[in-house]
Design a protein around this nucleic acid. Sequence first.
DNA 1: ATCAATGCAAATAATTTGCAAAAAG
DNA 2: CTTTTTGCAAATTATTTGCATTGAT
Lengths: 157, 157
Amino acid sequence: MAVERCMAKKKFMDFLQRKKLRVTAQRRAIIDSAFDTEEHFSAEQLLQWSRRRDKSVSRATVYRTLPLLTESGLVRTMDFGGDHKFYDPNYADHPNHSHIICQECNTIVEFDSDQIKRLEGEMCRKLGFSVKTHRLQITGSCDQLKRLGACARKKAC
Amino acid sequence: MAVERCMAKKKFMDFLQRKKLRVTAQRRAIIDSAFDTEEHFSAEQLLQWSRRRDKSVSRATVYRTLPLLTESGLVRTMDFGGDHKFYDPNYADHPNHSHIICQECNTIVEFDSDQIKRLEGEMCRKLGFSVKTHRLQITGSCDQLKRLGACARKKAC
DNA sequence: ATCAATGCAAATAATTTGCAAAAAG
DNA sequence: CTTTTTGCAAATTATTTGCATTGAT
């Protein structure tokens, strides 16, 4: 919380400007909510957070803003196969990061690996492609889980 | 088409038996449809294929069987961010494969890389996890796209 | 002033469920 | 026989849309 990634916000404002879209109070509340956290969030969560800043934000506006966020490349849709979609606001800072998800407690760790990125590039070149984006999700069990048969954070999220 | 992966079917039958679930005509039609193709499919597509084999298959039964297929590990949910979910029946043969998706024509190429798998293992170990499953999706542009500015298969799928 | 953006409530689309009837083991 | 599975149609859920109004530029 309270990370204040002005960088991402500023980039998104530029994106709006480039597309000649307007900066409304509601959009500001949504943008602030999305980029003041490093957590992944659902549409519903984003709505709640945004309403805390501006009561007037409607669900429709959140749903209309989400595609703008993803189109800008600063937020990406994360699908962990659960019930609803999640959105990850950390792509401004770490444009290529990957995820490890603990099977048991659903804790998500983000990491970067240039080596993996390099291998992906090589594989793709061999197959006649060049890489634009990649999305790597690893499901795993953490040491605690292996040692104790359960994870302290079990079902925390 | 017509790949006849008896292996996967047999494994799924074993899975049903282990869970003491029954082999019905409808399930057989669905299983045959899912494993006689190497294509990714949607729930709707699976319903159509299954009905071709057995008119009596209902949409509800398809939706009730899909979780069994994924639970068995022989089929996995693929989310390419589009409108509906897709399912990939190639996990019996290639339990760790990855995907490259052409930005323009949505052609999907599957590939395996032991090197990437090894690096993933290393990264995870460093972070205190061991890998259970991985899911790697690369979006790219193909050589044709780069050379000609468009891909012959444009929007084929 | 002009036109994009909003809230609302109704519409859509995918998936899920209750239930009585049919079929597997 | 017992218990699971089925089809149907109704229910649920997330998301999208039409429209009159508001607000940014």
